[in-house]
């Protein structure tokens, strides 16, 4: 079986009294597409935040590959350990070309002095070209990133995440605002990525989750409610209660 890439143990994130994540144990297996779903405020995005260092865990440990403890590192150090993240809204560099965006995202020594001396190597050129092929932005490579369509921006950002050659990829609602066609392309892209990376995705679109998920985790009030395949999740009574039950109740009240 596949092994665990990322392991969270008894993690608590406390926002001055409100526990966005409460005693969470969480594991991500390698080479799998792992979706996190749950109602609003369940702590899904906070989970990604705490893994990538945007938010610090109050207590608990976060380990990558069984050995590297992440919770004490800064954001940029965590990236170099092998975790990279795509944010919900496309955050790309509009004033740089598509190729430039990939160039600076690429895995390389990113300290000041190696950057001053940095030059293209053949290997790096090949990597950027391969990535442009993968996400289908070859023709747009010299355009300013700001001029891309919304879907293209999302793919470019996924490409930027992949250029860092991470062990685990964090995606926050990658298909938000996409057309049906763009959605399918993104899904295929995710399947491709999962061939050699672990992918952890927060998503609201259940059809999309159903189609591409290997494992689905349901979060509720900062804790893990249920974990399993989409089918198991859909048939679990507790999940139905927090998810569907609440909706039914609301409807009744309304």
């Amino acid at each position: 079986m596949s092994q665990a890439v990322l392991k969270l143990k008894k993690v608590i994130v406390d926002f001055s009294g409100f526990k966005a994540i409460n005693q969470l144990d969480f594991t991500v297996q390698s080479k799998s597409v792992h979706f996190v779903i749950g109602p609003n405020g369940a702590g899904k995005t906070t989970l990604l935040d705490v893994v990538c260092g945007k938010t610090k865990a109050t207590t608990g440990e976060i380990k990558l590959q069984e050995k590297k403890e992440l919770s004490k590192l800064t954001e940029d150090q965590i990236v170099h350990q092998g975790i990279s993240r795509k944010f919900q809204a496309p955050t790309i560099f509009h004033n740089l070309t598509v190729k430039d965006n990939l160039e600076i995202a690429m895995k390389q020594k990113k300290n000041l002095f190696s950057m001053i001396k940095a030059k293209w190597t053949n290997e790096q050129k090949k990597k950027v070209n391969d990535m442009l092929d993968l996400v289908g932005l070859k023709e747009e490579q010299d355009q300013l990133a700001g001029s891309l369509a919304h879907g293209q921006k999302q793919w470019m950002e996924i490409a930027m995440v992949l250029m860092q050659e991470p062990d685990i990829v964090l995606l926050d609602e990658p298909i938000a605002g996409m057309s049906k066609k763009e959605r399918n392309k993104t899904g295929e892209l995710i399947t491709k990525i999962a061939k050699d990376h672990a992918v952890l995705i927060v998503e609201h679109d259940m059809d999309f989750v159903k189609e591409y998920a290997d494992i689905v985790s349901v979060m509720h009030e900062g804790q893990l409610l249920y974990e399993g395949s989409m089918e198991e999740v859909q048939n679990d009574p507790t999940v139905r209660e927090v998810y569907l039950g609440r909706k039914v109740e609301e409807n009744v009240v309304n």
Binding site: S84, L96, K110, K119
Partner: peptide, 28 residues
């Protein structure tokens, strides 16, 4: 003109994003 310049522009346009690409903008 080199890669360094692109990083500076990156810091100008999205300092936080640069952190999540593995750069330490403070040093730059």
């Amino acid at each position: 003109k080199g890669r360094f310049g692109k990083i500076l522009v990156g810091i100008r346009d999205g300092e936080n994003r640069m952190r999540f690409l593995g750069y330490n903008p403070s040093a730059y």
